[in-house]
Simulated scan of single mutants.
Amino acid sequence: MSVIGGPVLGASAAAETSQLSPPNLQMNSVSPGLATSQDLVVAHQIELARSVQGVTTAAGGWNRCPAGNTCLFSAPNGQGAMAWFRSGSPNLAAQHFDNRTHATWKRAPGNWQFWTEPKYQGFNYLIPGPPTNLLADNMSSLKCV
């Protein structure tokens, strides 16, 4: 008898496995498709973004936005969860901020834009410099351009 990952070692393990396994269990292995070069670029961008950004649910307020970063807030007036970025993110779902941004503060240099779809697709908007409440929460990707 074998289980996923190799043979069962010992009689007691075999007995436990047969009791825990549902009858007539059939498994189909599915091979994932090959990653495209665009998939690899996006994966690299997400990993890069994770290395220079963060998310916090600490006490609210605009002042928790670190200097040199662009900050997103899940509630107006710098309240709620906050994510901060130095280079952006091709998919804000990775930071649990997809379509959740209600306020921004651009404390980083350069022009920052957000897009309504992941991977810098859809409509794009310039993020203003001072702390700003947004009228819509449709931000899905973000970067300095």
Rank of each mutant, 00 (worst) to 15 (best):
A94K: 09
N99Y: 10
K119I: 09
W112A: 02
N28Q: 15
R50T: 10
T116H: 02
I127W: 00
G54T: 08
T70A: 09
R86K: 15
N111E: 15
F114T: 00
G6Y: 01
N91E: 09
L142Y: 00
W84Q: 15
A136I: 02
L34Y: 05
P66I: 03
N91M: 07
G33S: 08
T101D: 02
T57H: 15
D137H: 05
W62E: 10
I4Y: 15
I46S: 01
N138F: 13
N133Q: 06
A11P: 14
T101F: 01
A49R: 00
A81G: 02
Q79S: 13
A11W: 07
S21K: 13
L40N: 05
T104A: 04
V41K: 06
A93L: 13
N28W: 12
R50M: 11
P109A: 12
G61P: 11
S141H: 00
A136F: 13
H44P: 04
A93E: 09
A58G: 09
E117F: 14
L40V: 02
S140Y: 01
Q113P: 06
D98P: 03
A35E: 15
P90H: 00
L40W: 03
S18A: 14
W112M: 02
F123K: 07
S31Y: 11
T17Q: 12
F114P: 03
D39C: 03
G33M: 08
N124Q: 14
T57S: 15
A83K: 00
V52I: 11
